[in-house]
Simulated scan of single mutants.
Amino acid sequence: MTMLSILDLVRITEGSDARTALDNARDVARHAEGWGYRRIWFAEHHNMPGIASAATSLVIAHVAAGTQTIRVGAGGIMLPNHAPMVIAEQFGTLAHLFPGRIDLGLGRAPGTDQVTVRALRTTADAANHFPQDVLELQHYLAPTTPGQRIEAVPAAGTQVPLWMLGSSTFGAALAAELGLPYAFASHFAPDQLQPALVTYRSRFKPSAQLAQPYVAVGVNIITAETDAQAQRLATTQQMSFIDLFRGARGLSRPPIDDIDTYSSPAEQAQMRHMLRHAIVGGPDTVKAGIDALVAETGANELMMVTDVFDHAARLRSLQITSECAAA
Results as ranks from 00 to 15, higher is better:
residue 4 L to Q: 04
residue 6 I to F: 03
residue 8 D to Q: 08
residue 13 T to Q: 09
residue 16 S to G: 07
residue 17 D to M: 10
residue 20 T to E: 15
residue 21 A to V: 08
residue 23 D to A: 12
residue 25 A to R: 11
residue 25 A to Q: 09
residue 25 A to K: 08
residue 26 R to P: 00
residue 29 A to T: 04
residue 30 R to Q: 05
residue 32 A to K: 02
residue 36 G to T: 05
residue 38 R to Y: 03
residue 41 W to Y: 06
residue 46 H to Q: 06
residue 49 P to L: 08
residue 51 I to M: 11
residue 53 S to R: 05
residue 55 A to G: 06
residue 56 T to G: 00
residue 62 H to E: 12
residue 64 A to C: 09
residue 70 I to T: 01
residue 71 R to Y: 02
residue 75 G to H: 10
residue 77 I to D: 02
residue 77 I to A: 09
residue 84 P to G: 06
residue 88 A to T: 11
residue 92 G to A: 07
residue 96 H to G: 03
residue 100 G to Q: 03
residue 100 G to F: 06
residue 103 D to F: 13
residue 104 L to A: 05
residue 104 L to W: 04
residue 105 G to D: 05
residue 111 G to Q: 09
residue 114 Q to K: 04
residue 115 V to A: 11
residue 122 T to Q: 07
residue 124 A to K: 02
residue 124 A to H: 03
residue 125 D to G: 00
residue 125 D to H: 06
residue 130 F to G: 00
residue 132 Q to C: 01
residue 135 L to I: 09
residue 136 E to Y: 00
residue 136 E to T: 15
residue 138 Q to N: 05
residue 139 H to M: 02
residue 140 Y to C: 01
residue 141 L to Y: 12
residue 142 A to H: 09
residue 143 P to R: 08
residue 147 G to E: 13
residue 149 R to F: 04
residue 150 I to K: 06
residue 151 E to T: 15
residue 152 A to T: 01
residue 153 V to R: 06
residue 154 P to H: 05
residue 156 A to D: 05
residue 158 T to L: 04
residue 161 P to H: 00
residue 166 G to T: 03
residue 167 S to K: 00
residue 170 F to Y: 15
residue 170 F to A: 08
residue 172 A to C: 08
residue 174 L to W: 15
residue 174 L to D: 03
residue 176 A to G: 09
residue 178 L to F: 12
residue 180 L to R: 03
residue 181 P to T: 11
residue 182 Y to H: 02
residue 188 F to D: 08
residue 188 F to E: 07
residue 194 Q to E: 13
residue 196 A to C: 05
residue 198 V to R: 15
residue 203 R to E: 10
residue 206 P to A: 13
residue 207 S to G: 11
residue 208 A to T: 14
residue 209 Q to D: 05
residue 210 L to K: 07
residue 212 Q to F: 11
residue 212 Q to K: 15
residue 213 P to I: 11
residue 217 V to M: 00
residue 221 I to C: 10
residue 226 T to P: 08
residue 230 A to D: 06
residue 230 A to V: 12
residue 233 L to H: 12
residue 234 A to G: 01
residue 235 T to I: 07
residue 237 Q to S: 13
residue 238 Q to A: 09
residue 240 S to R: 14
residue 242 I to Q: 14
residue 246 R to C: 06
residue 247 G to P: 13
residue 247 G to L: 10
residue 249 R to G: 00
residue 249 R to T: 06
residue 250 G to L: 13
residue 250 G to D: 14
residue 252 S to D: 07
residue 253 R to G: 10
residue 255 P to I: 03
residue 257 D to W: 04
residue 258 D to L: 07
residue 261 T to C: 08
residue 262 Y to V: 01
residue 263 S to L: 04
residue 266 A to R: 13
residue 270 Q to D: 14
residue 274 M to G: 11
residue 274 M to D: 11
residue 276 R to Y: 09
residue 284 D to E: 14
residue 285 T to P: 12
residue 290 I to A: 10
residue 293 L to I: 13
residue 293 L to R: 10
residue 294 V to C: 11
residue 294 V to S: 08
residue 298 G to H: 15
residue 299 A to G: 07
residue 300 N to S: 14
residue 306 T to I: 07
residue 306 T to A: 13
residue 310 D to Y: 12
residue 312 A to F: 08
residue 313 A to D: 15
residue 313 A to F: 04
residue 322 S to T: 14
residue 324 C to D: 04
residue 325 A to S: 14
residue 326 A to D: 09
residue 326 A to T: 15
